[in-house]
Amino acid sequence: MPTARIPYDALPPAALAAIEATTGPVLSFDSPAEGFNSAVAAKVHTATATYFVKALPSDHRWVWTQQREADIAPYVRPVGPALIAHLVTSGWDILIFEALPGRHADYRPGSADLSSVADLIQRIGELPTPPIELRDATQRLAAYVTVENDLQHFAGTTLLHTDWNSSNVIVGADTRIVDWGWATRGAPWLDAGYWTIWLIAAGHTPASAERHGARIPAWQAATAEGLEAFAAANARLWSATAGEQADPWTHRIMTAANDWHEFRRAMP
């Protein structure tokens, strides 16, 4: 579920001072409306540069994602932002990144961004899997399969981002992606599968979303059985995440995941 947001300047004074010891005096800041994984997420502006700051309380159940982002940052520089600093102070875990220039990707049907996002997914799949602790796709999806053998479809060693929320994809002179806290290793086609759900949520039919996914070479490694198993697992995952009183954002993704699952189940 989404993490409650607080303004950047609500951080403890000692934490703000630690940030400024790295960035220099912060003259202004603004917080994007998109994204749900950080208690603090803000662009901070100094006299000479702009940075992106994200933070979680040190005792938050997802604070491990901060360490994962810090660990993986050097290995994903071709497709992600540079990490400037990782600070733990005053009860907060804080990451300071370069602020990527550009705008959030547009996933709607007909968008000119779709080609560059497909290319980005391919570029990520071609990166060496870094020698750090990563989640495993079979581990992440094990609770959402009803046939144990279905997990074999998700196994692999390819580096995956897995969170293809359009707010994580920055389109500028180059297209790059932020928010690597849920980086995973698994089958090479899974990122294309995760993207498919977000495309459906943006207005594509399941058939249209799959056609865009199929532009990514790794998609060809997926079997019909694997795609159905993946769609089914994600439908269960998002239904469990939504619970009985889903917020509009979660309900939209849950509906997209269920629509894809129904489309896959109906295929001969």
Rank of each mutant, 00 (worst) to 15 (best):
T3Q: 10
R5H: 13
I6R: 12
I6K: 13
D9R: 15
A10Y: 08
P12Y: 05
A18K: 09
I19A: 01
T23R: 07
P25V: 14
D30S: 14
V40M: 05
T46C: 07
T46L: 09
T50M: 07
F52A: 03
F52Q: 04
V53R: 06
V53N: 04
A55M: 02
R61L: 10
R61C: 02
R61W: 09
W62G: 14
V63Y: 00
W64L: 13
T65V: 11
R77W: 02
P78G: 09
P78K: 13
V79A: 05
I84C: 01
L87C: 10
G91I: 02
G91P: 02
W92F: 05
A99C: 11
P101E: 06
G102H: 11
G102M: 06
R103H: 10
D106V: 03
Y107I: 04
P109I: 04
D113E: 12
D113H: 15
L114P: 08
L114G: 10
S115R: 15
S116E: 14
D119L: 12
L120M: 04
I121D: 06
I121G: 11
R123M: 01
I124C: 06
P128G: 03
P131D: 03
E133N: 12
E133V: 15
L134M: 10
R135N: 14
A137C: 10
A137P: 10
A137E: 13
T138D: 08
R140E: 08
R140L: 11
L141T: 09
A143P: 08
V145T: 08
E148R: 11
D150L: 01
L151N: 05
L160M: 00
N168G: 00
I170A: 03
V171W: 01
G172Y: 11
T175N: 02
I177P: 00
V178E: 01
D179N: 13
W182H: 15
W182S: 15
A183D: 02
W189S: 10
W195T: 11
I197W: 03
W198A: 07
W198F: 13
L199I: 11
L199E: 09
I200Y: 04
A201M: 08
G203R: 09
A207W: 03
A207Q: 13
S208C: 01
E210Q: 08
R211Y: 01
R211E: 12
H212E: 12
A214H: 12
I216N: 05
P217F: 05
P217S: 01
E228D: 06
A232E: 14
R236E: 10
R236A: 13
L237V: 06
W238P: 06
A240R: 15
A240T: 15
E244P: 00
A246Q: 09
I253D: 01
I253R: 14
I253W: 04
M254A: 14
T255P: 04
N258A: 10
D259H: 09
W260K: 07
E262N: 11
E262Q: 15
